[in-house]
C-alpha cells in the first residue's frame, strides 16, 4: 500500500511506542447500561486493555514457561518454580530466612540512611557553590562509574567480617547517584524564588532550608529511588563476598552446596525486598511532594 499524508497510523499496523503509558481505555459504548451482561463486557474490555493486565499475563506466562522447561529438562541448576516456592515456604517456616531477612534489611536501612543524608548534604553544597562542584565533580563521577564491588577487600580489611563492611559498601554503591541527582535538583531551582527570599531578608542557611531544599525535593527523591536500587545491589554483593549471616551469605551457602533450589528461593526474597524497598521510597516521594503545607515550621 502506498503511504501518503492521509494514512492513519493504525492502517500501517504499527503503533509507535512513543507516548507515555496510556491509562486504561474507557469502556466500550454500552447499549443497555442496566444489562448485567453489558456491564461485565465493559469491565472485561477495561481489564484487558489496562497495562496491569499485560504485566500480569506476562508474569504468569513467564513463570509457566519456567515451570514447563524445568520439568521437561530436569536439570539440577534449573529447579521448577513450584518447588522453589515450596522450598521458600519451608525456609520461612523454619525461621531461617526471616533472621537473614531482618539482618539484611537492617544493613540496607543503615547504609541507605547514611548515603541519603550525606548524599543530599554533599549534593546541595555542590549545587550551590560552583567551587565545591568543580572540586568534587571528577571524583563523584569516577567513583560512580567504577565497579564498586572491587572495593570489597578494602572494606573487609578495615572492618573485618562485621556488618560495617557491608554498610560501607552499601553507602558507596548508592551515595553517588544520590549526589548527582541532588546537584541537578539544586541547580534547577527557580532562581527568582531564591532572589525573592533574599529580598525578604533570608540569609544563606534560610535560603537553603526554606527555598532550595523544598523546591529541589522532587528531583532529590528521584535520586533516592535510584539510590535504593543501587543499595540493594550493594547489600547483596557485599553479603555474597563478605558476610556470614544475611540473605547473601545464606545464598552463597546454598551455592557452595550446589543447592540451586535454595539459591532461587533466596533470590525470590531478594527480588521482593528490592521491589518493596523501591516502593517504599516511591510512597515517601508521593507524600512529600504533594506540596504539603509545612505548617510545622
Amino acid at each position: 500500500m502506498s503511504v501518503g499524508p492521509d494514512t492513519a497510523m493504525s492502517e500501517l499496523g504499527l503503533k509507535p511506542a512513543i507516548e507515555g503509558r496510556p491509562t486504561s481505555v474507557p469502556s466500550a459504548p454500552v447499549l443497555l447500561p442496566d444489562s448485567r451482561g453489558q456491564r461485565w463486557a465493559s469491565l472485561a474490555v477495561r481489564v484487558c486493555t489496562a497495562d496491569g493486565f499485560y504485566n500480569l499475563v506476562s508474569l504468569v506466562g513467564g513463570l509457566l514457561l519456567w515451570e514447563i522447561i524445568a520439568r521437561v529438562f530436569e536439570r539440577p541448576y534449573l529447579p521448577a518454580f513450584t518447588s522453589v516456592v515450596d522450598r521458600l515456604w519451608e525456609l520461612i517456616r523454619s525461621g531461617e530466612i526471616l533472621g537473614d531477612l531482618s539482618r539484611s534489611v537492617q544493613n540496607l536501612g543503615l547504609g541507605f540512611a547514611f548515603a541519603a543524608v550525606l548524599g543530599v548534604v554533599v549534593g546541595t553544597l555542590m549545587g550551590r557553590y560552583a567551587v565545591i562542584e568543580k572540586m568534587l565533580d571528577p571524583y563523584v563521577y569516577a567513583l560512580m562509574t567504577a565497579p564498586t564491588v572491587v572495593f570489597t577487600p578494602v572494606y573487609f580489611s578495615i572492618f573485618g567480617l562485621q556488618r560495617w563492611a557491608i554498610v560501607a559498601l552499601i553507602v558507596q554503591y548508592s551515595i553517588f547517584v544520590i549526589i548527582v541527582n541532588t546537584v541537578t535538583a539544586v541547580k534547577t531551582v527557580d532562581r527568582e524564588l531564591v532572589e525573592m527570599a533574599s529580598v525578604f531578608g533570608a540569609r544563606e542557611h534560610q535560603r537553603i532550608t526554606k527555598i532550595v531544599l523544598p523546591a529541589a525535593l522532587p528531583l532529590i527523591m528521584a535520586g533516592m529511588r535510584l539510590g535504593m536500587g543501587r543499595a540493594v545491589k550493594g547489600m547483596i554483593n557485599g553479603e555474597l563476598l563478605i558476610a556470614v549471616v544475611g540473605l547473601g551469605a545464606t545464598s552463597e551457602g546454598f551455592a557452595r552446596a550446589f543447592d540451586a533450589e535454595g539459591v532461587f528461593a533466596v533470590l525470590l526474597v531478594v527480588v521482593f525486598v528490592a521491589l518493596a524497598a523501591t516502593k517504599l521510597v516511591e510512597l515517601v516521594d508521593r507524600k512529600v511532594n504533594a506540596w504539603l503545607p509545612n505548617s510545622q515550621r
Binding site: I236, N237, F258, V263, F264, L267, V271, A274
Partner: peptide, 13 residues
Amino acid sequence: VLPMAMLMPVIIM
C-alpha cells in the same frame, strides 16, 4: 533490579 551476582552459582552448575 535483579542482583545478578546471586545467579552465579546457577551458572557454574
